[in-house]
């Protein structure tokens, strides 16, 4: 949106209800467009400018801080029911610049740019000296833990074979020596008990995603795995909203920028259904 130097702008209070309304519309936009990682929630509005635009519209220019929640973006749980990731869990924040057009009382996003970053190790240590920090997602222990956990989950499942979508979070725990991982999965057209060659399995046309948490504990002469997956209701084949223009919402997982990303074609732009099923 061109914002000419001669146009007038207002600088309302950052906690003004209308400013907050714009910020919440921006957060909704993030959570419905981000393809990886976790939903974010509004933490603070840093700056706001309101440009008067002719005819009949205003452009809100916002800088906002967000915080990662524990809800994966594929989880249909409403944001209001998602818990903010606490400092002791190694919190992650997002910094976003937005421009939103307000017309007829409705906000629409015309520009967005977000970056996410984990809290510093020093800050985590201040509140919890022994808490594990986020680990790189391509760490060999992390990759191994996810592999073992997903294999264990499929071995116990009587339904579809689930394949990995993304590793979204990992921590290496020193005592007892263990690896904690969180990852997203998707159902395929193979049966879990009959999938001899997972490479031949295809994602279902009606996508069904799940989210898993697992701990792999090292033991003398072996290892133990504990995995819990929540499988969400299948997603309908409704057309998904697509990002338009030069938007760049990128609140990706934080620890490892080189970890393999899932094909965006396999992921929805928005979660459309409710009601998790725990397996």
């Amino acid at each position: 949106v061109p914002v000419g130097p001669t146009l007038a702008y207002d600088e309302p209070n950052c906690d003004d209800p209308e400013t907050e309304q714009a910020a919440l519309a921006a957060v909704d936009y993030i959570n419905s467009h981000v393809l990886r990682g976790y939903k974010h929630t509004l933490n603070q509005i840093d700056k706001v400018k309101v440009w008067l635009q002719q005819p009949g519209g205003q452009v809100f220019e916002l800088e906002i801080d967000t915080l990662e929640t524990t809800c994966h973006v594929l989880d249909p749980t409403p944001l209001a029911n998602c818990t903010v990731r606490q400092l002791v869990e190694h919190a992650v924040e997002g910094d976003c610049d937005f421009r939103l057009l307000k017309q007829d009382g409705q906000f629409s996003v015309v520009f967005s740019k977000c970056d996410s970053s984990p809290d510093s190790a020093e800050d985590v240590r201040k509140v919890c000296p022994d808490c594990p920090l986020l680990a790189p997602l391509n760490d060999t222990k992390v990759v191994h833990a996810v592999d073992v956990a997903l294999t264990a989950f499929n071995a116990q499942s009587n339904g579809s074979y689930f394949q990995l979508v993304e590793v979204s979070r990992a921590q290496l725990v020193p005592l007892p020596p263990s690896t904690y991982v969180e990852f997203a999965v998707a159902a395929t057209d193979c049966a879990a008990q009959e999938a001899t060659d997972p490479a031949q399995c295809n994602l279902l046309a009606e996508k069904q995603y799940g989210f898993c948490k697992a701990t792999l504990t090292e033991k003398v002469g072996g290892e133990d795995v504990a995995v819990t997956c929540t499988v969400f209701q299948p997603q309908s084949l409704l057309p998904q909203p697509q990002p338009d223009g030069p938007d760049a919402v990128a609140l990706a997982p934080v620890a490892d920028p080189v970890a393999p990303a899932p094909s965006p074609a396999d992921l929805p732009a928005a979660a459309l259904v409710v009601g998790p099923m725990v397996v």
Binding site: E11, P12, N13, C14, D15, T19, E20, T41, L42, N43, Q44, I45, D46, K47, V48, D65, L67, V84, L87, A91, V92, E93, D119, D123
Partner: peptide, 27 residues
């Protein structure tokens, strides 16, 4: 005729309109 004297505003607390409130904690 009673004239209300003008009220001269003294130096009050400075209101910082931005940034806004922190909803959870600062990272």
């Amino acid at each position: 005729k009673v004239v209300q004297p003008g009220i001269v505003a003294g130096p009050g607390p400075v209101v910082r309109p931005c940034p806004g409130r922190i909803r959870y904690f600062k990272v």
